[in-house]
Every structure is written in C-alpha cells, then in structure tokens.
Simulated assay, not measured.
Amino acid sequence: MFWNKLFEPLEYTLSGILVSDVGRKRTENQDNFSFGEFVNGNKSNSIRLEIQKVTLPQAYGIMDGMGGEKLGAQASLEAAGFFSDIKRDILEILPKLDTKGREKVFTSLIYSLNEKVCQMALENNVKQSGTTIIAIFFVENRAYIVSVGDSRIFLIRNGEVTQQNKLDTMNITITENGVEKQIRGGLSQFLGMDASEYELVPHIVDLKLKEDDTFLLCSDGLTDYVTPEEIGEAISNKSGVSSVDYLLGLAMERGGKDNTTIIRLDVKAKGTESTVSE
C-alpha cells in the first residue's frame, strides 16, 4: 500500500487569473479568449476573471484579432466562441490518442477555426479578416500547447522562464545609416487565411506537468514592451493578481499601443494551497 501511494501519479488542479485591456491607443479591444466558461462576447475594453482550484481536464486560449485586417474583433470572437464550444470534446478524446492522433486533432481544430473566420469575413463582404491563437490543453499530467501567429506562452518552472511556442512572424532586414537591422513584418500564418492556397501548420508542444509549474499566455500587447526575463521575475516573486497587474502596468507605462491580454495559470497537486488571489 505504501509503495502504491508513493508512486501514484499526482492529480493536479489549476488556479488562474485573466486580465484583458484595450490599452492606451486603441479604441476597440480586438483581443478575445476562452477562460473557463467565458469569452469576451461584449468586446469589453477591460475585463478581469479568476478561477480557483479547478480540476483537470481544462483548456484555455487567447485570440488576438489582427488590427491590420478588417473585423479583427469579430474574427477573434468567432475563434474564441468555437474553441469554447469544442474544447470539451477535444479534452475527452486526447487521453485515448497517440502522438499522431493528437496532432491530427489539433490540426483539424486549427483548420476548423480558420474556416469559421473565413466564413465570417465572407458573410460580411470582407476580403480577409484574421486572428492569432495560443491555446493550452491540460489532461491528466500533461499540457498540450497549440498556436498560430505571434501570441506567446511561457513556462515558469523553478524560477526559470522559457517560451514554449514558435512564432509566425516575418522579419525584414533594412539598412539604416549603413547598419543592417531587422524589424518585425507581418505574419506568415494566422486564422483567416485562404487554406486552399496556403497550408496552415500549427505549432504543437507536449509537456509533462510538474507541481508548481506556472504558465503565462499573452497577446503581443505585453511582449512588445515586457521581456521574458521580466515576466519570469514577476511570476516568481509576486502572487497571481499582483503579477498580472504589474505586467499589465509595465505594458501601459511603456506605451500601451495595443490591446493586452494575459492569462496566468498555476499548477498545484490536489490538496495544496494556491496563491493566485493573495
């Protein structure tokens, strides 16, 4: 009995907080999300949500509507709504699948989301609309990360911060005063692309969870102004509410030109205390 208990897999819970803010320059919040049962259906300029000790499986996501395309807010809302509707079905089947099976499911999800955004644009007589997505699925003792675009997800483990997903940004090299430098261009892929002409390839990461892991998902309204090191320091040294308020405050102080959405998720073994709301 003792040995069975000693090697019994840990059961995890999640506590978390979400903030979404329109920023200082934009007049519309084109970010959206799937956080528990909530999406930003009213496209509110400022919103805060919390969860406490929810049991797995769970899934969360941030959808950043593209300001350079028409109906960016509607594109992110379409993606967030469909993701919220389908995530329970995906969570149910993930434990039954091998690696290739999960890749097929996540790729199918991305193509379905892409179709939803394209259909919305067509119905509104818009040539193209777009949104990015970063999502994380927690099942048993694993986390599966899926992304398209330039929103990011960080893992903070034992005080170290590491970015978990690849970005679909295109860098452009320019020469200025005889010096070459790179500036960020557009996106090589996003939700809302013509899938008959371009192949969508989601970035998928499979992680084994450890107790006290913290994940931070964010739109580029945060990472345009705040470094990964600053994110890791804030998560490691501040409680849930304090950390996201601090990070959002930094982004606003340094310009706040874009909408900013942040989700912090803390992984705990069942029965341990969470510090998200302290």
Rank of each mutant, 00 (worst) to 15 (best):
A73C: 04
L18V: 09
V39N: 15
K53R: 13
K70I: 05
E50M: 07
N45Y: 09
A79T: 09
N40Q: 00
E69T: 06
A59N: 01
L97C: 05
L14F: 06
S46V: 09
L49P: 14
I51L: 12
N29S: 07
I86Y: 11
L49F: 13
K100L: 06
I62F: 14
R26M: 06
A73Y: 10
Q30E: 14
K43N: 15
R26L: 01
K70E: 12
K25M: 04
G68P: 11
I62L: 14
F35W: 04
F35R: 01
I51A: 08
F38S: 01
S84E: 10
G36W: 01
Q30V: 07
R48E: 15
G72Y: 02
R88V: 12
S20E: 12
V22S: 10
L56A: 04
T27Y: 10
A75W: 03
L77Q: 12
G41Q: 01
V19K: 07
T55R: 01
I17N: 07
K70T: 08
K70G: 00
L49W: 13
A59Y: 14
V39E: 14
V54W: 00
N32R: 03
L94V: 12
N42D: 14
T55E: 15
D89S: 15
F35Y: 13
L71V: 01
K100T: 13
L77W: 06
F35I: 05
E50C: 10
L14R: 10
T55D: 15
G65M: 02
I86S: 14
I17S: 07
P95A: 07
G72F: 01
V39D: 13
E92N: 10
K25H: 07
P95H: 02
F33H: 08
A80V: 01
Y60G: 05
R26S: 12
D64V: 04
A75M: 00
I90G: 11
A75G: 11
N29F: 00
A79L: 12
L56F: 09
Y60A: 04
K100R: 10
G36Y: 03
S76R: 05
L97R: 05
T55S: 15
R24I: 09
S44C: 11
E28V: 12
V39F: 01
F82E: 06
N40G: 05
P95L: 05
L49E: 12
G36R: 04
D31E: 13
A59K: 06
D98G: 11
E37P: 13
K43D: 13
E37K: 03
E92L: 08
R88K: 14
E28S: 11
V39R: 01
D64A: 02
L94F: 11
D21C: 02
K53G: 14
G16N: 09
E37I: 05
S76Q: 02
R26I: 03
E78L: 06
I47C: 10
F82V: 02
D98P: 08
L18M: 11
V39L: 08
S44M: 03
A80T: 02
N32I: 00
V19M: 04
G65A: 08
F83H: 03
V22D: 09
